[in-house]
Structure formats: C-alpha cells, structure tokens
C-alpha cells in the first residue's frame, strides 16, 4: 500500500476487503488451473497435450491479468467501480475452463 492511498480511507476498509477477495479468487483459479493441467497431461506427450496445456496457461494468465489490473485500481482511496468488461472477462475464464474440461473428459 502506498502512503498516498491512506488519506481519506473509510473505516470499513472496503477497498482492502475487495482486494483480498480478488486475491482469494485468483487462488481459486490457480487451484482449478492446476487440476485442469493434471487432466490435460496424461503422459502421451502428443500435440493435443501441448495445445491443452497452452490453453490452460493462457486462461490462467488472463485471469491473473484481470485481477492484477483491478487490484491496482483498488489502491486508490475511492476506487472506481468494477468495469463490466473485467467482470465479463473473469466469467469468460471460468466458462472457458469448464468448456475445456468437457472437451478433454469426452
């Protein structure tokens, strides 16, 4: 936290709580991505496996990017609201993992 961000903070520590919520969500996304990687890597070393791994890593990086951007916005004393585009992107990452799972399991 920067010193300039401490002026005029509300007592409920709302931005901090929201920042921690993003951190928890990143953690949940990481755990799911690791499970997805375990499913994708079945030991044959084929091109499909490499592609699957790349897709999962990209989804994970996208989610980390969204979270990082939002966490930086939340450093302000009165942060702006969440951009609908970020919300949609986070949801898209989750749905993409789910679609990937369906593709791999079948």
């Amino acid at each position: 936290m920067t010193a300039s961000g401490t002026a005029g903070r509300d007592a409920g520590l709302q931005p901090e709580r929201t920042r921690l919520a993003w951190r928890r969500t990143t953690l949940a996304c990481s755990v799911t991505a690791v499970l997805a990687l375990r499913t994708a890597l079945r030991g044959s070393g084929s091109a499909v496996e490499v592609l699957g791994t790349a897709v999962i890593v990209l989804i994970w990086l996208a989610f980390l990017g969204i979270a990082h951007r939002r966490v930086r916005q939340l450093a302000a004393a009165r942060p702006p609201g969440l951009a609908p585009r970020s919300a949609l992107a986070a949801v898209a990452c989750t749905v993409a993992l789910s679609v990937f799972a369906v593709a791999v399991i079948f």
Binding site: T18, C29, L35, A36, R38, G81, S98, I105
Partner: peptide, 24 residues
C-alpha cells in the same frame, strides 16, 4: 459497488470450485 463486486467474486469462486470439482 465494492460490496456488490465482492459478492460477484464470491460467486466466481463458487463457480471455480465447482469446475475444479468436475476435474477432480
């Protein structure tokens, strides 16, 4: 707005946990 955002994130975590459960 921030409280609404945290509720949204809690639902996203629930969704991620369910997807993770599917993989598991």
């Amino acid at each position: 707005s921030l409280a609404n955002e945290r509720t949204f994130l809690a639902w996203i975590r629930t969704a991620l946990a369910l997807v993770g459960g599917g993989f598991a």
